[in-house]
Amino acid sequence: MRVPPMLPLSPKNKWRYGLTALACMPPAALTFEKSLALVDKGAVSTDKRTHDARTLADGWDITLWHRLPAGGPRAFASVAVWRYDRRDQHDFRWRDDLLVLGFHVGIDDTPVRDAPARESWTRFLLELGDILQPDFMALDLYDEFMNRKGTDLTQEVFAVSVYGPAMVSAVGEGRLRSLPAPRIEARPWGAITVRATDAISIAADPLLRQKILNAL
């Protein structure tokens, strides 16, 4: 059994060093309606529902909440939602005409060794992707994205990669479905999900990462 990679021992920012999903799309694709659906997917006070959606659609960051399985010490965990559409030290864009929307799980809530909790988080983040329907979306540890900052993320391999319909057409559905990944699944909106690993990060298996990369 492969051992998942170690997390940073003393991260400077706990909101950005855990499980992360980056959704890549044209800026105009993040409409108020999609922002409202994102807010509705999490738990939010009714009086803040529209306010949070407008805040995100208008270009600012918000916080979502994910309901945790019953029986644990807490009912919810927060997810920091960051818009990467401006030049700063955390800009994950590789083109100026692109919006990268980041969903950041705190390191304390990142399930490194808890497989059921990890699957719950993966389902939640993929369901956010179903709302956004981005051209490309990836799930992995934050450091995996930071190591590739400024590069075309669609040409990289992450723990989970979601190829929207336009990407499926560009890459080829047959090619994506034949990738040497453990699981390849279809999303209801025409996207294809490539699960390269069930671990928290593809960093746990660099040989498989390279094998999939060579086949892309």
Score class of each variant (00 low, 15 high):
112 V>G: 04
136 F>Y: 15
114 D>R: 04
28 A>Y: 10
13 N>T: 09
187 R>A: 14
125 L>V: 05
126 L>F: 03
158 F>G: 05
69 P>E: 12
128 L>P: 05
11 P>T: 01
134 P>L: 13
153 L>N: 08
75 A>F: 11
5 P>T: 03
42 G>C: 11
83 R>M: 09
142 Y>S: 15
134 P>C: 11
120 S>Q: 05
91 D>V: 15
193 T>F: 03
108 D>C: 00
91 D>P: 10
77 A>S: 10
62 I>S: 02
48 K>Q: 13
19 L>K: 08
164 G>S: 02
141 L>V: 00
24 C>E: 11
73 P>R: 15
78 S>R: 13
27 P>Q: 09
118 R>S: 00
173 E>M: 02
113 R>A: 06
44 V>F: 06
212 I>G: 02
158 F>I: 03
62 I>V: 11
50 T>C: 12
180 P>W: 08
38 L>R: 11
22 L>S: 06
130 D>T: 12
147 N>L: 13
43 A>H: 12
50 T>M: 14
63 T>H: 06
33 E>N: 13
10 S>W: 12
186 A>T: 11
81 V>H: 01
2 R>Y: 04
91 D>A: 12
203 A>V: 00
172 G>K: 02
173 E>P: 00
97 D>S: 08
143 D>V: 14
104 H>C: 03
102 G>E: 08
22 L>G: 07
121 W>D: 00
180 P>F: 08
19 L>A: 07
74 R>V: 12
198 D>A: 12
40 D>K: 15
180 P>T: 06
203 A>P: 00
7 L>W: 01
96 D>R: 14
138 A>T: 03
48 K>S: 09
180 P>Q: 06
35 S>A: 15
55 T>W: 07
111 P>A: 05
41 K>L: 12
63 T>S: 12
94 W>F: 14
32 F>N: 12
83 R>E: 07
50 T>F: 09
24 C>L: 09
50 T>E: 15
69 P>T: 08
141 L>S: 06
148 R>P: 02
15 W>V: 01
52 D>Y: 15
155 Q>I: 00
214 N>E: 07
30 L>W: 06
67 R>D: 03
43 A>D: 12
69 P>S: 11
63 T>G: 01
104 H>N: 06
3 V>R: 15
47 D>Q: 14
100 V>R: 04
163 Y>P: 01
171 V>H: 01
2 R>I: 00
39 V>Y: 04
142 Y>T: 13
133 Q>L: 02
97 D>N: 12
96 D>P: 05
45 S>D: 14
101 L>P: 01
90 H>Y: 14
160 V>Y: 09
210 Q>N: 11
29 A>W: 07
197 T>H: 10
170 A>P: 01
170 A>M: 00
21 A>V: 05
73 P>Q: 14
212 I>A: 08
209 R>V: 02
179 L>C: 07
159 A>C: 01
18 G>K: 06
37 A>I: 08
38 L>F: 05
128 L>N: 03
75 A>V: 11
25 M>R: 11
70 A>R: 15
174 G>Q: 07
86 R>L: 09
9 L>C: 10
86 R>I: 11
112 V>W: 01
98 L>E: 10
123 R>G: 07
11 P>E: 04
186 A>Q: 10
111 P>C: 04
215 A>E: 04
79 V>K: 01
35 S>P: 04
150 G>R: 09
97 D>A: 07
163 Y>T: 02
